[in-house]
Write a protein that binds this DNA or RNA. Structure first.
Lengths: 240, 240
DNA sequence: AGGCGTTTAAGTCAATGTGACCTTTAGGGG
DNA sequence: CCCCTAAAGGTCACATTGACTTAAACGCCT
């Protein structure tokens, strides 16, 4: 943090980028936004969207800008949190590039518009990716893996699952979020009891939503609570 | 992540540093290692130890090196994990400096030797600091606050508490770690039951330690488990 | 209108985990 | 030998959980 070393040959300036792991749920699957790289290195390879941090913006502002530029997504409507920094000196063949990975979660997001420096952008099912992650450019396989574990873990002890739902949500929708991301069935009755007994997880609106068939579902909004106490642990689930 | 912008005036290279929040428990208190800055900016002000990342090292290697250089601590003996990146363009008056904060935890560590670029290094009780954090240089008050919350939170659902104990530990010592960091008394009996029922938290050695007075305590080592399932939640505690 | 399938909502019950509290055991020192 | 202290082990009421059952509210079909 001091400049006694700035002139030493051991220290060099770095390029700083942000990379985004953007997740959503579409057609019952957990999807991540990928781009097909339009420039070297890794030309043509799939990668997480991202780009250089500009001069006068914070890291978060940079992430929000890339979200808009590369995916055409308005960041105000989704959850954005920092995942971590990746700075292996050999992670980018062009030289030292430190990237700050961000995790973004949103409700069923629109098909992304092609980014500025990407041939195209598209939603990729995470399930299809977890085997052949080696296809991703740079150290993005590792970033994606950490992002996934972060999401799965945060579902347990925070109310982050509501970020995957629109403003008005039913308990079934919320349960489906857990089921899709954890890849495991949950007992609807026990899930309902758990969520409603956790003060501040969701708050009732009084309105209802009428599904194509079956009893109407009560509509809720996100509550004020962020930490779930006690947490909603995975495991057990439904043996069905 | 692409170089179509490298020449634009909107992008600039950055200095990348690591900062360390090193915690230990000394004389029944949670302590954090601070240095007194020997150079501008913030000369004379307390700060977290840290420094520039060198050319051919990873971020983690840089953190381990600073740990050695500024605090004289061998990083192999303590727990080191990344906390996050701090990159507000105004966080350092000299220009854009992105810092990667690391969290280090260790058993009762030696009095630190004066660092290379610091007037002196010393252990500061966290309790005395939480009020007047504004005294710290840069955005270190925010980094320290996040580090503290990270530690308090990780005690709940990981076995990280053992990082504060030496290789051989008693259940009382482990409980004291929780009590000091959470600032709350725990019931010894319930704590024992909880820890011993969590497979892999600690494993018995068969040996004993003889306190100055009272029944000898069984000695344990760290177990293989990292995630506690179910977690050991704060709250309740001992109403004594 | 009445029965049916479907989805949400609500209730039951045994097993488990937790918090509060008490008793026993194993040392050292007077 | 008794007392003090800290560790270890036990008890009991209560809350939470997982598995399962039952009731309610819709659309649809005949």
């Amino acid at each position: 943090m001091d400049d006694w070393l700035k002139d030493s040959t051991e220290v060099e300036a770095s390029w700083v980028t942000v990379d985004l792991a953007i997740f959503t749920i579409r057609s019952g699957q957990l999807m991540v936004l990928l781009i097909e790289r339009g420039v070297e290195p890794f030309l043509g390879r799939p990668a997480l969207p991202g780009g250089y941090v500009h001069k006068n913006e914070t890291l978060r502002e940079g992430a929000l800008r890339e979200l808009r530029e590369e995916a055409g997504i308005d960041g105000n409507k989704l959850h954005l949190e920092q995942l971590g920094a990746y700075g292996d000196p050999r992670r980018d063949p062009r030289g030292r590039v430190v990237t700050i990975a961000y995790l973004a979660l949103g409700p069923d997001l629109p098909a992304p518009v092609g980014g500025t420096d990407a041939r195209r952008a598209y939603w990729a099912p995470v399930s299809q990716l977890e085997g052949k992650q080696a296809a991703l450019a740079f150290d993005h396989p590792a970033i994606l893996a950490e992002a996934l574990e972060q999401v799965r873990s945060k579902l347990e002890y925070t109310a982050v699952a509501t970020a995957f739902c629109s403003e008005l949500l039913t308990l079934s929708e919320l349960r489906t979020v857990y089921e899709v991301i954890w890849g495991q069935q949950l007992d609807p009755s026990n899930f309902r009891r758990k969520v409603l007994n956790t003060t501040g997880f969701v708050k009732p609106t009084g309105d209802q939503r009428f599904p194509p068939t079956g009893r109407p579902a009560a509509l809720y909004r996100r509550g004020d609570a962020w930490l779930l106490n006690p947490p909603l642990l995975r495991g057990a689930g439904h043996t069905a």
